[in-house]
Design a protein around this nucleic acid. Structure first.
Lengths: 201, 201
DNA sequence: CATCTAATTAGATGAGCATCTAAGGAGACG
DNA sequence: CGTCTCCTTAGATGCTCATCTAATTAGATG
């Protein structure tokens, strides 16, 4: 079942009349007339609500002469329900977080600062990509400002600055730094970054 | 948890943005800014959605300096979920149909006419209570009108009329009938109704 | 076939709601 | 105290949807 289905399910249930219809159908099957009378609604309105519930597979119809008996599909309810039982399932509501995002959030603390620099070169690359985004593309920065910006993310601004240069994400000339375009970056697997010591916060 | 809470829960989840927010918060706590950026919404919009989710107790806030970290309350999700696991729970969405209602609907056909008069004294009492409501409290009826009204519900108006009198739900004098107040009625278990023959329609 | 009843479809109306911009706190920080 | 940042509140706008009336379909029945 897709996320769109789940949304449709919630939209279907997010209406008092439909919620009451579901409750009534959970007791026993009913006709449109009967529901309309019970809910004090006109038949077309009930018909409309039943169409919505049928659309998501929650209600089935059994024609009988000129009447149509509507019943709740309990299995469909249970299926929807399984989507919500665990926090993990709910987390999956969101398009899978990319590997990069998961690496990054694993190394960030609640304040958005780096808890450590990963030892893995590939993971460190993710961190550097994120770090370089702290700088504007079109500005030139004195070293003091670079350090200040980096220190908002980690105490060891010197190492971070050195690694950004090493990855060709930033350039330096005469004490002035600037951000390089993505095209200039080395890819993580040919960058020759010296293995850094663990930098635990 | 009340039905109104359940409806509020569905209304809260019946929106794509909020559904995605819940998914994101299920992964880890987030700030308004972060959510706004991820969802491509303005901060006030996210703020509004978070307020809705807080209203139903699904999201909690942890202020931290100028920022506010929002997190999912997994327990609240689980609680909502328990409401939906079984068909019995869903049936309870609707105020339990009383025994009287079930008796009545069992003896009515689709047209609202009596299929039969129950043999059980207690059940017949339910039918009579419903029948007497066909008459206004403050009017006096000639016998012909009483018969006509009763015949809209069952062919044997004579028996119905006799039983209404016997139950002290209606009174008659000089060929004129009127409805008696509920206080005047005999209770079903001391009414001395002659056991009626089965009256199948 | 004509008619009756149950239900659905079509179309209109009005209420609710998602989102935005603009303005107003409120904590942090020099 | 003034300013910056993050967030919320207020108010406006436009879209979605719940409900209704009127018209149509479709089975049942004489």
């Amino acid at each position: 079942m897709s996320d769109a289905d789940l949304l449709a399910f919630f939209k279907a249930m997010a209406n008092e009349s439909r919620l009451r219809i579901v409750g009534l159908l959970a007791q026993r099957e009913r006709t449109v007339q009967e529901l309309a009378e019970t809910l004090v609604l006109k038949e077309p309105t009930v018909s409309h609500h039943l169409a919505v519930l049928k659309e998501i597979g929650l209600v089935t119809v059994r024609p009988d002469g000129v009447m149509r008996w509507h019943a709740l599909d309990a299995g469909a309810l249970a299926a929807m329900n399984r989507r919500l039982v665990s926090q993990e399932e709910v987390a999956a509501l969101v398009p899978e977080e990319s590997w990069e995002s998961r690496v990054l959030s694993g190394f960030l603390d609640a304040e958005g600062r780096l808890k450590a620099l990963p030892a893995s070169r590939r993971k460190r690359w993710v961190i550097l990509q994120w770090l370089v985004e702290q700088f504007d593309e079109d500005r030139r920065y004195p070293e003091a400002e670079v350090n200040a910006t980096l220190q908002r993310r980690h105490w060891d601004s010197a190492t971070l600055r050195r690694e950004l240069i090493g990855a060709a994400m930033m350039a330096r000339e005469a004490g002035v730094y600037w951000r390089l375009p993505r095209s200039a970056w080395r890819s993580y697997d040919d960058a020759r970054l010296e293995p850094s010591q663990a930098m635990t916060a």
